[in-house]
Computed example of a mutant assay.
Amino acid sequence: MTSASQTTPDGRIIVATDGSANPNPGPAGWAWYVSASCWAAGGARNSTNNRAELAAVLNLLRATAGTGARLHILIDSKYVLGIMGGNNASKNTDLVATLRAEMTGRDITTEWVKGHRGNTLNEGADQRCGDASAAARRGTAVPTGPGWTL
């Protein structure tokens, strides 16, 4: 474990991603979370939960592009895990194609975690995507976070 993040035994940085839309579809938020000093979030006035979940992973991959970071991504969406594992998508094909392009050549592993069950990283991502969704619903500035700081 480093001072700023948790790592797997093989040195991958552990990151949680999450997305939410409330109502679904409706104002949405996405977030990825490593630590209180390394996270990002964003929102949309009108989206779906699945698009927000995809946006979280996509924005993580964009934030770490070119850094050489080896990632272990904790995901509470079985939909996104399936997409990342190669399942065909009949919806959200624009985001799916972009996500898969960003995954090309990257050293990434994934793990499903049950949401809202006390996993510190998942809870951090959930809180931030919820805050982003609430800001989008109010029409106020979304708290975007410090970004990738490792």
Results as ranks from 00 to 15, higher is better:
residue 118 G to K: 13
residue 124 G to E: 03
residue 43 G to F: 03
residue 60 L to E: 01
residue 101 A to F: 08
residue 67 T to D: 01
residue 132 A to C: 05
residue 70 R to T: 03
residue 47 S to A: 01
residue 92 N to V: 13
residue 126 D to K: 05
residue 119 N to I: 07
residue 99 L to P: 02
residue 40 A to D: 06
residue 148 W to K: 03
residue 145 G to I: 07
residue 143 P to R: 10
residue 37 S to A: 15
residue 76 D to F: 05
residue 105 G to F: 14
residue 99 L to C: 14
residue 104 T to M: 15
residue 91 K to L: 12
residue 66 G to Y: 09
residue 86 G to D: 03
residue 38 C to L: 02
residue 49 N to Y: 02
residue 113 V to G: 02
residue 78 K to N: 07
residue 51 R to Q: 00
residue 67 T to I: 12
residue 88 N to L: 15
residue 114 K to Q: 14
residue 56 A to T: 03
residue 96 V to L: 10
residue 108 I to T: 11
residue 104 T to Y: 08
residue 89 A to W: 07
residue 49 N to V: 01
residue 70 R to C: 00
residue 137 R to M: 08
residue 54 L to T: 01
residue 61 L to W: 09
residue 147 G to V: 05
residue 41 A to V: 08
residue 48 T to Y: 04
residue 89 A to N: 10
residue 128 R to T: 04
residue 45 R to Y: 06
residue 84 M to D: 01
residue 85 G to I: 11
residue 99 L to T: 14
residue 44 A to F: 05
residue 57 V to M: 12
residue 46 N to F: 13
residue 71 L to R: 11
residue 76 D to P: 01
residue 66 G to A: 03
residue 78 K to D: 10
residue 117 R to G: 11
residue 65 A to W: 01
residue 96 V to Q: 04
residue 91 K to V: 14
residue 130 G to T: 03
residue 104 T to R: 15
residue 112 W to K: 04
residue 120 T to M: 09
residue 77 S to L: 02
residue 120 T to Y: 07
residue 96 V to I: 07
residue 98 T to V: 15
residue 105 G to W: 11
residue 112 W to C: 00
residue 123 E to P: 01
residue 78 K to A: 11
residue 46 N to E: 15
residue 123 E to L: 13
residue 41 A to I: 06
residue 148 W to I: 10
residue 145 G to V: 00
residue 136 A to C: 08
residue 49 N to E: 02
residue 88 N to W: 14
residue 116 H to L: 01
residue 52 A to R: 04
residue 137 R to E: 05
residue 142 V to K: 06
residue 118 G to W: 10
residue 118 G to R: 09
residue 65 A to T: 08
residue 77 S to A: 02
residue 84 M to K: 07
residue 59 N to G: 08
residue 70 R to W: 06
residue 147 G to A: 03
residue 133 S to N: 13
residue 108 I to S: 12
residue 136 A to W: 06
residue 115 G to W: 09
residue 125 A to R: 04
residue 131 D to Y: 11
